[in-house]
Amino acid sequence: MIDLHIHSTYSDGTCSPADIIKKVTEKGLYGFSLTDHDTTEGIPKIIECSIPQKIHFLPGIEISCDTPKHEIHILGYGINYKSETLNQTLSDLRQKRMQRNLDMIALFQKDGYPITLEKLQNGNPNTVITRAHFSRVLIEEGICKNSDQAFKKYLGDTCKYYLPKPFFHPKDALKLILDANGIPVLAHPFQYHFSSLEIENLIRELMTYGLKGLEIYHSTHHLGQITKLLEWQKKYHLLGSGGSDFHGNNKPDIVIGTGRGGMYVPDHLFNLLEHASAGTL
């Protein structure tokens, strides 16, 4: 069993790299990947923690980019996380998105809501702030009962306090991963509220930019969706991946390795991605 979609405190998770290794070890995983949003800064911390020899680790990332209809996410596996080009580009993206977060904070504060940068960072100034952080603070302040309410009333795309992030084209995200010797994989394809035809067209478009795989197994994917993704994987000769999308307490119902309880990602997918990133496939 493996888990190739995990977030730490270096993006919008609540577990440190050391905590993640502890959970991975307790779960008895064959392999895992850290895929923080738009940053590689947690990867050296994972490596410094001395991963048990029996557990395999693949450096990863999840990059947010945009289509005209919806933001999408591209996972990158086996990346050269020390790449200066990769890290400088990600730093520039984070700075632009930080300004967007500051502008959203200003909108909330103008209407009297006690949202501050310090509360969003929650003691971790390195965290990559997303709408999940705003949701957490809204719940902690008693403004919302849960994340669904926070997004429906305050953070959804049509809400007063939402501001779009700077546009980043999928072509650029894929190039960034490929140039860092990584394997780009479309994350959770059924989360974007696209029809099956739109998803397949998106896959075909992304393949022209260098897409190499699909995240088939995910905490939100049901059997019918997994079956469809396996069909597309075979049809387009793509690699497969899978993971829980673990965020710690930010998504408390999702557990490393098994997601919401029924997820199982086969070990051989780790080996295939590792070999592909090493250029041995």
Rank of each mutant, 00 (worst) to 15 (best):
M1C: 01
M98G: 05
A150M: 05
L163V: 11
T40V: 13
G261A: 07
G13C: 07
M104E: 12
H5V: 03
T280F: 07
I21N: 00
N87P: 09
T9L: 01
I74P: 07
L93Q: 14
S11R: 02
N250A: 04
T9I: 13
L214P: 13
R204T: 14
A150K: 04
G279Q: 11
L29G: 00
F57S: 06
T227Q: 14
K54Q: 13
P170H: 08
F57A: 03
T40I: 03
L273C: 13
L229H: 09
S147E: 14
F194P: 03
T130Q: 05
H221Y: 06
M1L: 05
H169W: 02
T130N: 03
V255P: 00
G257F: 01
Q99T: 15
T130H: 03
K212N: 11
A106K: 15
T116P: 12
K145I: 08
T40P: 09
E62V: 03
Y209G: 08
R204F: 08
G42T: 02
P266V: 04
N249R: 10
E198I: 11
Q109S: 11
C49W: 01
N101R: 06
P125I: 10
K119D: 13
K153F: 09
I21K: 00
D253C: 01
L230C: 13
K69C: 00
N271P: 00
G259I: 02
K69L: 12
A132V: 13
S33N: 05
S83R: 06
E26G: 00
P252E: 06
F167E: 13
L107R: 15
L214M: 09
S135K: 06
G42K: 01
C15T: 00
E71I: 09
F108E: 12
F167L: 12
V255F: 05
K251H: 04
I143W: 08
Q121F: 02
G242F: 00
G259K: 02
F167Q: 09
I183M: 04
C49P: 00
L174S: 09
Q53E: 15
I105P: 12
S83D: 15
N87H: 09
D36E: 02
T220A: 11
L75W: 03
Y113D: 08
D245S: 04
L93C: 08
G42H: 01
L186P: 12
Y81G: 06
S64W: 00
K234T: 15
E71S: 15
R97K: 10
E41L: 12
E215Q: 09
L214Y: 11
P17R: 02
K45I: 09
A150C: 11
I129D: 08
L163E: 11
A278G: 12
M1Y: 01
K96L: 14
T25W: 00
C65N: 07
